[in-house]
């Protein structure tokens, strides 16, 4: 995917159109904006899955609030958040504890990604299940960000 991306950039990037007419400059900007969006969507499994769900036209039927209320999901979220809150940044073991939490989250993400691959590979895609998977992945991503912030505090502490 890197090769066609670079080839298209080389052909249409606004830098190639600086000496052209206003219309050509505008068209180049539009094309490359789309290209960047497509590149990012295709590169990231979650963005790609969300895009496929949207394109299927089944996205409207999904109730995001109901997904939030699913007991299994809620339980998982609470456990993870509690575990993160228990990491005291003054604890000398804090970094190790954080890393083990990260490993767990990474594992969950890997599971969800494998599930997504299977779901999208099916002949008749179960879009409800895709939406559930997307939703869980989105949450795990946010959890990773929360962990990043704790990690940065730890970095700051020991320089």
């Amino acid at each position: 995917m890197q090769q066609p991306y670079q080839d298209l950039q080389r052909a249409f990037h606004p830098d190639r159109f600086v000496q052209r007419s206003a219309t050509e400059r505008r068209l180049s900007l539009e094309q490359v904006t789309h290209l960047n969006r497509a590149y990012q969507t295709v590169k990231d499994p979650l963005l790609r899955s969300e895009y496929l769900l949207e394109r299927s036209g089944q996205g409207g039927a999904i109730d995001e609030k109901a997904l939030n209320r699913e007991p299994a999901f809620l339980m998982e979220v609470m456990e993870q958040r509690e575990a993160l809150e228990e990491v005291e940044i003054t604890d000398p073991q804090a970094m190790q504890r954080l890393q083990s939490l990260r490993r767990e989250a990474d594992q969950r993400i890997a599971q969800e990604l494998a599930a997504l691959r299977a779901l999208h590979g099916a002949t008749a895609v179960d879009w409800q299940a895709v939406a559930r998977c997307n939703h869980r992945l989105r949450y795990q991503r946010r959890f990773l960000e929360a962990m990043d912030q704790v990690e940065e505090q730890l970095w700051q502490q020991d320089g």
């Binding site: 080839d7 052909a11 249409f12």
Partner: peptide, 18 residues
């Protein structure tokens, strides 16, 4: 303005080629 359609066609040709 009057050459916008020409610029558009040239761009499309470029994309097709790419």
């Amino acid at each position: 303005k009057e050459t916008t359609f020409f610029a558009q066609r040239r761009m499309d040709r470029g994309i097709k080629a790419a």
